[in-house]
Design a protein around this nucleic acid. Structure first.
Length: 505
RNA sequence: GGCGCUUUCGUCUAGCGGCUAGGACACAUGCCUCUCACGCAUGGAACACGGGUUCGAUUCCCGUAGGCGCUACCA
């Protein structure tokens, strides 16, 4: 049997920023497409004109650009199956709506939202389905000429999918196996609204996936309950033989408490839920983004990939290329995963460790400049090299590294108490003389000279080093002493020591 | 309420009938050391419960309970 080329799609609604769960769905689609030599489509599902948010589409595209997830066709990427924006495909959907109507697989309903709401409040668990549709105002209960008259009058209507009761529908899911649902629990879903002349998600989705020759639908678990409906639609349209395979991914849950991950959780717990910073045009709210928070895109990808899937080995640091090779959609977890953002921070730490210092330097330079520090790249890079191992984010370097660029003004009280002995001033004064005589100010040479002096006077290494550190840093932290002095240079070292002796006595 | 999905350390997970139930994050301790980190080592920590099937169940089946989702003229 000839296998058709794998084609998958990521199809968000432009209703706001891209949620991190959506990013993971897109990532899994990307991995699946790449490992099968297939194609990834970017489609915009904007069939709900009321919820459209300007800028959302651009935001989503920019997010994937930053993350390094590349699409092969779709909105802004071109391709031969366009247009890729559903609002531009009205004319296409209309013909399939008419086809279903003509074949008696769908019907026209005039019930207003108010009427439906009234019905729902008066009848408990009301459902518009095979058992109730004959009590409603639709083309099944009204005379054909009456229907035509109402339409001609401009009465608003919807087209509903006619689902007959009592049939078992089987959905094969690549992750969950067979899922069987009885059509009796399904309602006659609205497929099309006359008000905006647009289909609803369900119809648009099936028509587009068919026309765009999508072979695998990989989406969030929230779609699982409507998957049987989708199967029925493929059948009704006569496309069952080319129906795509389904895979429903587990959801991302709140790190604490209950329910699915929301934007509020990020605000509350202090982590981003959006890839990029998002400025809501309606509320004016600004939400933080992974990019702006200092995450490396590779770290975000790696973290997300392992939330719901793993290679079955003990390797956790995986490049995009390795993920493409190892990913297996059938090995995804089935239960929702609490969003462990602390582990996300650890991934960033690991990627900072592995990243060449030179590539981290621009970000650090930016932080330095925000703090009024202007130094050549070599200086900034030297500090990055010394200190990057101790942070999760580049911006965390500043408080740890400030002393490299700004002499301490105050000396940490606790450290002074512990490290500045009554004889420290005297020793530091002597050390200044030693430092003055060192011509080669390299780490090795200084170390040699200072150690020789310490040994000659039988001083305690700890006494000297800790007091010295206090004079240069202002507290008892930081990298090796000679790394610090070599960076500061002889003049700055001496001047800091002199001031400390004066202040601390 | 109805329907569906789901259930291994605090968290993410490995396991696909017989294991001292493995790894990672987080936490604790120790080592390293001129300090603080990093790093390294060690430790505590889990099969939701009840029935079956089987010589044997974390693993297969059925219940129960918990969790999650859907239940719109939203996606």
């Amino acid at each position: 049997m000839e296998k058709s080329k794998v084609r998958v799609r990521f199809a968000p609604s432009p209703t706001g920023a891209l949620h991190i769960g959506g990013v993971r769905t897109a990532l899994y689609n990307y991995l699946f497409a790449r490992q099968h030599g297939g194609e990834l489509i970017f489609r915009i599902e904007d069939t709900d004109s009321a919820r459209f948010v300007p800028g959302a589409e651009e935001y989503i595209i920019e997010s994937f650009r930053w993350l390094g997830i590349q699409f092969d066709e779709g909105v802004s990427f071109g391709g031969s199956h366009g247009p890729y924006r559903q609002s531009e495909r009205r004319h296409i959907y209309r013909q399939y709506v008419d086809q279903l109507l003509k074949e008696d697989k769908a019907y026209i309903a005039f019930d207003t939202p108010q009427e439906l709401e009234a019905k729902r409040s008066e009848v408990p668990n009301f459902q518009y389905d095979a058992s109730t549709r004959f009590q409603m105002r639709n083309s099944l209960t009204m005379a054909p000429d009456e229907v035509e008259r109402l339409i001609a009058q401009g009465e608003q209507y919807v087209v509903r999918f006619k689902i007959e009761a009592g049939e078992q529908v089987c959905v094969h899911d690549m992750i969950r196996g067979e899922v069987v649902v009885n059509t009796s629990v399904l309602d006659d879903k609205v497929l099309f609204k006359s008000a905006d002349q647009l289909p609803t998600y369900h119809l648009a989705n099936i028509v587009d996936d068919h026309l765009m020759e999508v072979t695998h639908v990989i989406r969030g678990e929230e779609w699982l309950p409507s998957a049987p409906l989708h199967v029925l639609l493929y059948r009704a349209l006569g496309w069952e033989d080319t129906m795509p395979q389904f895979a429903h991914l587990p959801l991302l849950l709140k790190p604490d408490g209950k329910g699915k991950l929301s934007k509020r959780d990020g605000d509350r717990l202090g982590f981003p839920v959006f890839p990029l910073e998002w400025h809501d045009p309606k509320t004016g709210d600004v939400s933080r983004g992974y990019r702006e928070d200092g995450y490396l895109p590779e770290a975000v990808i790696n973290f997300l990939a392992l939330l719901g899937w793993n290679p079955g080995t003990e390797q956790e640091i995986l490049s995009l290329g390795e993920l493409v090779e190892l990913f297996d959609i059938t090995k995804c977890s089935r239960a929702g995963a609490k969003f462990d953002y602390v582990k996300g921070q650890w991934f960033n730490h690991e990627y900072i460790l592995r990243k060449p210092d030179a590539e981290l330097t621009p970000a650090f330079q930016q932080i330095l400049q925000q703090n009024g520090i202007h130094v050549p790249d070599e200086r900034a890079q030297a500090v990055v090299g010394m200190m990057k191992g101790r942070v999760n984010f580049v911006h965390e370097l500043w408080p740890l590294c400030k002393f490299f660029f700004v002499a301490p003004e105050v000396y940490d009280e606790k450290t002074v108490k512990k490290r500045w002995k009554e004889y420290s001033a005297q020793q530091m004064a002597e050390l200044m003389e030693v430092v003055r005589t060192i011509d080669d100010f390299s780490i090795e040479s200084q170390e040699q000279e200072v150690h020789r002096w310490i040994e000659a006077h039988e001083y305690k290494m700890g006494d000297i080093m800790n007091a010295w550190r206090l004079t240069l840093v202002g507290e008892g932290k930081g990298p090796g002493m000679f790394d610090i002095t070599a960076f500061l240079g002889k003049d700055e070292t001496l001047s800091r020591m002199e001031r400390a002796i004066k202040v601390l006595g």
